[in-house]
């Protein structure tokens, strides 16, 4: 599910050279959140770049779900265990606690039922990692304020009538949803356009204004 045409850093095919050099910054950040040798499900794994990174850097036993046939083919050709499927419908089929982490990278805004997806992620996995573009970023606010049109940026490059992204949210919106379903935030980072952390801790409203993306590490409340 290539939900947004984000900072593309393609992998180098099926060779065995380490990917660290060309990896996306947000992927590297996510990799840093994942314990070594854990079991990981990447929902909306695209061409499998993050799964490969996790496998090579963290030694994880990784699985993926991907909506596009091309993406699945890419992944299988790279030797990744990926099934063609849909976050909205297929997560329900996984048993409780089958993974240590379930990752939803830049995909939640393209799901039909983000809340249900999130709940399934935290049922299937002991932890969840969610990254998403922040619709509260100041540039988007200014576009709406001054141009009066749906914002488009480098990350969010599709016009409103032709976008898979149907459930945008801001960082604050997302935190509100987490409160509602009772999820513990173990870690959160606001990122710039390239996926690098803003590098300072700040109140939510600051992150909500200046983060172009955010990454959350979540855990069920006991």
């Amino acid at each position: 599910m290539t939900a947004i045409t984000a900072t593309a850093a393609s992998t180098s095919g099926i060779d065995d050279e380490p990917l660290t050099q060309s990896a996306r910054l947000d992927h590297l950040l996510i990799a840093g959140l994942i314990e070594r040798n854990s079991r990981v499900l990447d929902v909306g794994c695209g061409d499998g770049a993050l799964l490969r990174l996790l496998s090579e850097q963290r030694g994880v036993d990784g699985r993926g779900i991907e909506l596009s046939k091309e993406g699945v083919n890419d992944c299988v050709a790279k030797g990744l265990s990926v099934i063609q499927g849909d976050a909205d419908t297929d997560l329900a089929d996984y048993p409780d606690d089958s993974f240590d982490y379930v990752i939803l990278s830049q995909t939640i805004q393209a799901t039909r039922h983000p809340k249900v997806v999130l709940e399934h992620m935290l049922r299937v996995g002991r932890r969840a990692v969610v990254s998403f573009p922040n619709f509260g970023h100041w540039k988007l606010r200014l576009q709406l304020l001054f141009q009066g049109r749906m914002p488009m940026t480098g990350i969010l490059s599709n016009p409103w009538y032709d976008t898979p992204n149907i459930h945008f949210c801001t960082i604050r919106d997302f935190v509100g949803l987490l409160d509602e379903i009772g999820v513990k935030i173990e870690r959160a980072d606001a990122l710039n356009r390239l996926g690098a952390p803003l590098g300072f801790t700040a109140p939510w409203w600051v992150w909500n204004m200046f983060g172009e993306q955010a990454v959350f590490l979540l855990k069920r409340k006991d």
Partner: peptide, 18 residues
């Protein structure tokens, strides 16, 4: 088949070819 394999924790890839 894929659902059953996932439920059993098997390593599975699945693709529907157009």
């Amino acid at each position: 088949i894929v659902h059953a394999l996932n439920a059993g924790g098997a390593s599975v890839s699945f693709v529907e070819i157009e």
